[in-house]
């Protein structure tokens, strides 16, 4: 478990990075459906500090994925301001990585090729450097031995792990995670949660993670943002001061879980 992280630390290519801050100021988004404008997000204001871990929870369909896509630069039309490291976001940049809700590996590429794809537009690294990075990230998500497998030869959880490796391999300053562990079995999930925590602690990457799992949100987040639906807006933000590394068993976390559950219920009753 710790071996893979050690491996990463020793790797000459991954300097301890510092994340960048993410600023959302009055972000609203509507999709037009059958000629009608459907509001999906309304007036989201959120300042994520550099190196902070923010969890986002909320009911299905309340616009969590859309919000991450806006931060990533994939959605071109929205109202409000989105900045990463002080720069307005207009298109995807190398600063920002995104783990999609579905793994989105290319079916015609092997695991190794899929992960290597992320480094294709990197001009600083040597070929060997890239190969080493890819291999260490395959090890990180425990896919050694499956380098040459195609996505349809993997289980759902394995594919999702490959997708996580693909997003991590570029060492983005900001990592957006859209229910990254949704398809992963309970045991691997525990492992990856802790691995994510350690990764975050070593790299100080800014992370914004959407999850349905409240305990996961609490385990990893400095703050938990609770969204309420139709249109998606911020219900409340919970600060989690529990020191790290966390195990998930802390009483402070259990108390916070109670409050989130209450908050989500309020959101649903409306």
């Amino acid at each position: 478990m710790s071996a893979s992280v050690l491996h990463l630390r020793q790797s000459p290519f991954v300097a301890p990075l510092s994340g960048k801050d993410v600023v959302l100021e009055g972000v609203s988004k509507a999709f037009s459906m059958n000629g009608k404008d459907m509001p999906v997000l309304r007036d989201i204001t959120l300042h994520v500090k550099a190196g902070e871990f923010v969890s986002i929870v909320g009911a299905s369909g309340c616009g969590k994925s859309t919000l991450l896509r806006i931060i990533a630069g994939l959605e071109k039309t929205f109202d409000g301001i989105v900045q990463i490291g002080g720069q307005g976001v207009e298109a995807p940049t190398r600063d920002c990585g995104l783990v999609f809700q579905d793994h989105r590996l290319f079916p015609w590429l092997t695991v190794r090729q899929n992960i290597a794809m992320a480094l294709r537009s990197n001009r600083e690294l040597s070929t060997q450097g890239k190969a080493d990075l890819v291999q260490s990230h395959i090890a990180l998500v425990k896919l050694d031995g499956f380098e040459n497998a195609y996505p349809d030869q993997l289980s759902g959880g394995m594919a999702q792990r490959a997708a996580i490796a693909r997003a991590l391999v570029t060492s983005p300053s900001v990592l957006l995670l859209d229910e990254p562990l949704g398809a992963v079995d309970a045991l691997t999930r525990l492992h990856l949660q802790r691995e994510l925590q350690r990764l975050w602690m070593t790299r100080r990457t800014t992370m914004i993670m959407v999850t349905h799992d409240i305990e996961e949100a609490l385990l990893l987040g400095d703050r938990v943002v609770i969204l309420q639906p139709r249109p998606g807006r911020i219900h409340s933000v919970l600060e989690i001061h529990t020191p790290r590394p966390r195990t998930g068993e802390e009483t402070t976390l259990l108390a916070a879980k109670r409050r989130i559950l209450d908050a989500l219920n309020v959101g649903n009753d409306e």
Partner: peptide, 27 residues
Amino acid sequence: QKYQDVADMFGLTFWVRLKLLLLPAAL
């Protein structure tokens, strides 16, 4: 579009996109 999004995220240039996404998908 979901694969185009991935290619956008990693800033694939036209030729790399052609080789890794467009050609195989259109094959």
